[in-house]
Structures are given as structure tokens and as C-alpha cells.
Design a protein around this nucleic acid. Structure first.
Lengths: 362, 362
DNA sequence: CTAGGGTACGTAAGCGCTTACGTAAGCGCT
DNA sequence: AGCGCTTACGTAAGCGCTTACGTACCCTAG
């Protein structure tokens, strides 16, 4: 139940790590003295609070700039209860989807002078919950949680409760691509994206479509899948049919799903991978199985990670603005809380490239 | 003193980030009281410092665990000069090379209970220096700097001076793949890697080799290039020849370099991209220019980012253990400083895949 | 002219921790 | 017995900020 690595031996790390006091950076008192005002006034002026006349505030700000004053975030946090750290939970930082989101978060955070603490949950709900608790214990002020939610109501409820308590105490939370948490969220329209992909394939004449889906327990999977199915159902009269194979949201998952599709649904002419990582695995396996893309099999992905355009064949996919999503999520969390959770829908765009073509005429 | 009603944190007028004091986690005093010792003793026991008898220390640790006590990192930092944040400077987090390094750093940091603050320098030396100063101003305890160094002695000297001063005050520094900083470093053998790539190509019969190099000012570029040239020079007697085109370490850079190589050095039968990102761009351009790989042109990369194996054709490259490099760098920084900079050389491995083949017989 | 109220600023009390220094007890030594 | 040394612990002074509250001053209304 405790965070890993909390054993006595590990604490030594801190023991070794200490800085000399001589690291003389200007402090708030220095600014205050130069400006011939009190600490309180200097603090108020720099925080932009009122109760300071415009001219004095200007003088203080100027002097702070001249001295190269940068507030000590630790002191600030300790004193004010204000939290200048944002905790970002992702499944895996070296997955392009998440690294692009992170890039957006980090970028805005840097602009705002906030620290970003990144945690990797490794796609494990239990570990994710532990990370969440750890972040809260570390007194972050903002928690950004990305990655798909879990269908399991118990898991999700625990996270939800933890976050609610955190918000109760003034913490800010925003979710990215995750809607069941009862918090502000930036959400791609996964269903519409799935719908668009299926439509695109059916427009090309495909009728036997297989879906390489991520873990069955993820809401993202369910949503994207729902979009695909509803598009297919709408054209059911034309004989469209859907096979769904569950694996996981990685390249390896894509490879596994492809094997299964090839074996169990040989009539398939198009594979919808529910994210780009899987699509990369799908393409890779099709290549080694000598299945021509798109001549014999069309493939689509979802996300448009940046490498998607440089694959061979380049990947038809749904573009999601990941970097912007990260930015937006942080921006959302930075705003004052509203009574009810806000949702920002992100745009999405079908990007047609070389991995899709007309259905083979058999 | 405790009013349950209206606390400052609840008012939250201007979207200020503040937490209510009511976020009652156990503090060190609570542990100390339960253990019937003083604050000082509790602190010493939990920090693993001596001056506390074994049994008392055990009791304190047990009680801390029972209470779920987690030290407030801000207070700890403020008070002790001990720094529990590690600053990580990368060029770009959504570049797989750096995201894999980050993953390693984050992982070890999580184990050690350290915060990780990631900065993106955007490959701009001036901005990187600014980020560096920012991290120092933010009082991080450890700075990890990755990405190639710059050939420009002035730029590098400034960073070097800044880091030296930081270390002077007890800060810890480690570099990843960067050797001119006068600090501990984990270094791949770029020269040997370049050598191995060139050897591999020449073994396959290639004699007209072109290099798609990153920016001319980077030490990584110089080192990898030196390896390639020296291998080629060694076989100069056999008529091997080298064309070098400089661009930058991105996919776009790879595309640009390829265009130039195709135009200016049409006799080329093999392209050495000095990192995998460029190699992806090279492959992409060759495909659109209808140059068969490896039949008409062989391509090699450097790094072995995880997608390299799933490209079409899969990429022959030098494998570097990026994740482990990140981990090692942090581990290095965590150790007490030694008198002179330590260097950890990482292994590397030529991974032969489908993007290389025998030179065309013309 | 004074009460009442607003504005601009100062004073000082912490936030939760680390650590220099002080103290009391126990030990061996002469 | 008396001295100094070591060990184990307590006391209290901050670390650099924020902010509740106090104070001086000016303005307006009565």
C-alpha cells in the first residue's frame, strides 16, 4: 500500500543531496529593501494582488526584474498553500501519443512557471491509482490525467473519489481523453472519428472490416468501436460486416491482432486499428505476411502520431491535436473551477494517405 | 483556531491556485508526538542520519508508516537545502530518442521519490542556456542534460560555467550523450557506432556512401561522422568514397538531405543517416522518389528508436540503450561527487534489418 | 470638527521541515 | 573522584515566502 522505494535506505539520497546556503540568489527581502517597501508589499505587488498603488507596484516589478529575482517555488508553496507543481499521469512517456501530449503540457507549464511532474502508470489501473495518491501526497496543485479510462466501475470510482477529495481541498484536475472521472476534460470525439474511418473504408467498397481493438476494458476502445460499428450498422443493408479482435494499444498488440484477424477472418479487406501504435504493428505484420497494402488490405489508424505520415505505406488515420490537447487540459485546470465539469471537445480530421485504397474485387 | 466554514482557499476569486489548510496529512510533528520524541529525532530517524538509537529509529519509522506519513518535499527543500527535484533538459520530449531517455529518468526518479522537471530546449543553444538558468533558479538539486553538445566553444563554455557554479553549491549534474561539459556523463560510443555502420555497408559492397548528417555544429554529428569517415578512409584503397550533407536531426532533415544527395550525388548506393529520425525521413523520400530500398539504395540509421523495427523496410541501425542511459545518468548524479568527471560508456549494437542489402551491381 | 470608512502599506505569525547547538547521561581514564 | 569524550536526544532558529491583522492616512458625510 505504500509507494515503492520508501525504505530507509533510499532516504539516504536526500541526505547526500544538499546545497550550500551560499547559493546567493536574490530573495524577496532583497527586492523589498531595494524598493524601500515591506516584504508584504513586495509580495503583493509581484503576485498582482491589489492593495498596492500602481506606481509602487511598477517600481517593485522593475527592481525585481533588474535583480533577476525568481521566486522560490518551495517557499511559495509552503507558505501559501499555493501549489506550483502539476502532476501529469500518462500511460507511458515513450509512446508518441503521450509524448506529444506531454510536450503540450510542458510547454504551457514552462510559460507559466510551473513545475511538471510526470508519472507513468504503465497502463495498470492499480498502479495508476497509486501514482495518483502519490501525487496528492506530494502536494501537487494540479493533476492532469490522460490515457483511457477503465470500464471497471470499481477502479474508476476509486480514482474518482480520490480526485474529488483532492478538488475538495482546492486541487485542480483535468482529464485528457477520459470522461468518466467527473472532472474537467478535453475530449476527442472518438465515436465520430471511428465513424469517419468506417465510412471512408465503406466508401472505398470495403464490406468485410476487422477492428484491431485495444484492451476491452478501456472507454476509448469502446467509444471508437461504437463509432465504427454504428457506421457499419447503418450500411448493414449493403452487407457490411464487422469482426472485432481485442488486444492492446501497442505495436505488439497490433501485430497480435493482425495474426488473429488473418487466421480467423480471412475474408477481411480492411483493418481498423483503434490507435496508430496498433496500426504500425498491423502494417508490420501484413508486410511480413506478404499481404499488400492497400492492394489486398486497407489499414487505418487513429491519432495521427507524427511518424504516421512517414510510414510505408503512409497511414490513413484520424488526426487528433495531441499537443494542443495537453495544452488545453492545463489551461482548463488553471482556470477557476466551475460548478460542473467542463468539457472541451477537440476537433478531429480524417487524413487519407496511402494505406487505404479500393476494396479488392476478389 | 480551526474554523470549518470559510477558509481562504474556498474563495478562489481570481483562479489562484491555493489549497485549503484542511488538507490534513500527517506531519512530522504528528509522527514525533506518537513516538514520544522530539521533532529533531524524528527527522533524523527518517532521514537515516545517525545520532538515533536503533530501537527508537525503528519505532519512529514504524509509526511513520502506520500514519501514512509522507514528507512534504517543499518544506524539506526549503529547510534543508536538500533538493528533491531533478531537472531534465531534452531537445524535444516528443522525439522518441528523448522520450525513451525520459522514460528511464522518470522511472528511477519515481523509485527514489524525486520529482522530475522536464524542459525542452528545442535544439536552440541560447534557449537551452536559459532553461538551464531557469532550473538553477528553481533550485533543482540535480540537472540532467541530454542532447548533443554544440561545437561553438562560447555557447558550450557558458553552459559549462553555469553548471560548474551549480556544482560548486552542491548541485549534481550528469550529461547524456554529451561530453564537453566537464561533468559526469553517460556516453554512447558514437564514433565506434559510425564505424560499424560504414563497415557493414562496405562489407555489402557499397563504395559510394552518402551521409545525411545533423546540424554541423553538434558534437554527436561530428563523432558519428568521424567514425564513418575513418572506416571509409581505411578502405579508401578500394575506392570507397564519402559525400556528406548536413541538415538537422529530424525526419524533415532526413527528407531534405535525401533530396540533396539524390541530386548532387546520384552515384550513391547507401545512405548513412546519423540518427533514426533522419533515417525515417530518408526512407520516406526514397519511397516517394521510387528508389527501391535496399535494392537500389541501402539505408542505415542510428539509435534504434523503438519504431525502427516496424518501419518498411525495417531499419538497420545502431542500437543504443536510451532508457537505460537515462536511468544511469540519474544514478550517476545521485552518487556522491567524485573529484573528476566520471564517464560511463554505454554499449551499442549493430542491428541488421531489411533496409540494407548488397550494393547494386549497376 | 469628528465619526466612519476606504486605501496603502507594515508587522509578524506561521507553512513543515532541517540542523546547529545545548544538555544530560554513560564511559574510560588518570 | 574528577576530567573529558562520546552518544542520544531536545530546543529553537531559521529556510523564503504568504497573508491576517494592525496602523496611518486621506476623504467624505453629518
Amino acid at each position: 500500500m505504500n509507494v515503492t522505494g520508501n525504505r530507509p535506505g533510499d532516504m539516504d539520497v536526500f541526505g547526500e543531496l544538499r546545497m550550500s546556503r551560499a547559493n546567493q540568489r536574490p530573495r524577496l527581502v532583497d527586492v523589498a529593501e531595494h524598493a524601500a517597501v515591506s516584504l508584504a508589499t513586495a509580495s503583493r505587488a509581484l503576485a498582482g494582488r491589489d492593495g498596492v498603488s500602481a506606481e509602487v507596484a511598477d517600481r517593485i516589478r522593475r527592481i525585481a526584474r533588474e535583480l533577476g529575482y525568481v521566486a522560490n517555488p518551495y517557499a511559495r508553496t509552503l507558505a501559501g498553500g499555493a501549489r506550483s507543481t502539476v502532476g501529469l499521469i500518462v500511460h507511458q512517456v515513450d509512446d508518441p501519443y503521450f509524448s506529444e501530449i506531454s510536450a503540450g503540457v510542458i510547454h504551457l507549464a514552462a510559460e507559466q512557471g510551473l513545475l511538471v511532474q510526470i508519472c507513468q502508470s504503465g497502463r495498470d489501473p492499480a498502479y495508476e491509482l497509486q501514482q495518483l495518491r502519490h501525487l496528492i501526497a506530494q502536494r501537487v496543485g494540479i493533476i492532469l490525467i490522460s490515457g483511457s479510462g477503465y470500464d471497471d466501475p470499481r477502479v474508476e470510482a476509486e480514482a474518482r473519489a480520490e480526485l474529488a477529495a483532492f478538488q475538495e481541498h482546492g486541487g485542480r484536475v483535468a482529464a485528457i481523453g477520459r470522461h468518466a472521472l467527473g472532472v474537467d476534460a478535453v475530449l476527442p470525439d472518438n465515436e465520430a472519428g471511428g465513424f469517419a474511418l468506417a465510412e471512408h473504408l465503406m466508401d472505398l467498397g470495403h464490406r468485410r472490416i476487422a477492428v484491431a481493438a485495444g484492451s476491452a476494458g478501456l472507454t476509448t476502445v469502446a467509444d471508437r468501436l461504437a463509432g465504427v460499428s454504428s457506421a457499419v450498422r447503418l450500411r448493414g443493408a449493403y452487407g457490411a460486416d464487422l469482426a472485432v479482435v481485442h488486444s492492446d494499444f501497442t505495436r505488439g498488440g497490433g501485430r497480435a491482432a493482425t495474426e488473429q484477424i488473418l487466421n480467423e477472418h480471412p475474408e477481411t479487406t480492411a483493418i481498423v486499428a483503434l490507435n496508430d501504435a496498433m496500426a504500425i504493428g498491423v502494417l508490420s505484420t501484413l508486410r511480413s505476411r506478404r499481404v499488400a497494402v492497400p492492394a489486398r488490405m486497407s489499414v487505418v489508424g487513429f491519432d495521427d502520431v507524427s511518424v504516421a505520415a512517414d510510414l510505408a505505406p503512409s497511414l490513413t488515420t484520424i488526426r487528433l491535436p495531441m499537443t494542443e490537447m495537453g495544452r488545453t487540459a492545463l489551461a482548463l485546470a488553471l482556470k477557476p473551477r466551475s460548478a460542473r465539469p467542463r468539457r472541451r471537445r477537440t476537433g478531429h480530421l480524417l487524413v487519407v494517405r496511402d494505406s487505404t485504397g479500393p476494396a479488392p474485387t476478389t
